[in-house]
């Protein structure tokens, strides 16, 4: 096995049984690899199995067949190097912003004082100052998303799984958060698997874009995005290269949806 890869999915199958016992094959001999520090985006038609792929990498779900390898090794349970920003709202409604963000370090046995300090730092970084003691129901959707991001980033994961993290944000905030994400990533160099419906977002952020086919998903095409870094999110979208790649991915995807 080539252990150059941090994440490797090797001919993975994942099935679900419907309540009546009918089998839905979501992933069928699905393979994909991610190198350390690589920023990968995943696009594909809705329901094709993107979230399923992330939950396999995270260890929350198990493959029915095939191998999921982290650093060339199969693992049991959840790897502590993984961080996962979920597609659905998953902040704890009974904890205020501060407690929501410090919960990861506390789970991992760091003392309360240190965890709180770290959390205050992250509150600043995601721009939630003044809302430390608000409960999630008192925040807007975008603010809750930022709590979720801080909650994940505070553990400084080496493998960062993100499932449409910015889809609920307005365009300006989205661009700000994308820029912030690139900055964080360039500092920490985590391997990122970033699921999105937004083709432009995928191209702007990623080194590599995986285009998936409709269900059962396989990797239809891989684009290497050689737009130079550091990228300015608000400007990169007007370059010729960006427009070309986006168009091409657009065509790939419409083939999948129209059939």
């Amino acid at each position: 096995m080539n252990s150059n890869f941090l994440i490797e999915l090797d001919n993975v199958d994942r099935r679900f049984a419907s309540p009546e016992g009918k089998i839905i094959q979501v992933l069928d001999s699905f393979s994909m690899t991610v190198k350390p520090g690589e920023f990968c985006a995943v696009v594909g038609p809705t329901g094709c199995g993107k979230s399923t792929t992330l939950s396999l990498i995270s260890g929350l779900a198990k493959a029915n067949a095939g191998k999921v390898l982290i650093e060339g090794k199969e693992f049991n349970g959840i790897d502590p190097r993984v961080g996962y920003v979920f597609q659905t709202d998953a902040v704890f409604p009974w904890k205020n912003v501060l407690d929501n963000i410090s919960v990861g370090p506390l789970f991992r046995g760091i003392n309360k004082k240190e965890a709180t300090e770290k959390a205050f730092d992250w509150i600043k970084r995601v721009g939630l100052q003044g809302f430390e003691y608000h409960y999630p129901h008192q925040l807007s959707g975008g603010m809750r998303k930022r709590v979720a991001l801080a909650q994940t980033f505070i553990n400084s994961p080496d493998i960062l799984l993100m499932d449409e993290p910015f889809s609920a944000l307005d365009v300006q905030t989205k661009i700000l958060m994308q820029q912030e994400l690139l900055q964080l990533w360039s500092k920490h160099k985590a391997a990122v698997v970033f699921v999105t419906h937004d083709i432009e977002e995928a191209v702007i952020l990623a080194d590599k874009v995986f285009v998936l086919s409709k269900r059962p998903a396989r990797v239809k095409k891989i684009y290497n995005i050689d737009i130079q870094r550091p990228r300015i999110v608000s400007e990169a979208r007007y370059t010729q290269k960006f427009i070309e790649i986006s168009k091409s991915i657009w065509n790939d995807l419409s083939e999948e949806v129209n059939i």
Partner: peptide, 14 residues
């Protein structure tokens, strides 16, 4: 909520 439990697991909860 299974999502909250999944989130806690990934964040490091035993």
């Amino acid at each position: 909520d299974v999502n909250l439990i999944a989130n806690a697991k990934v964040l490091g909860a035993n």
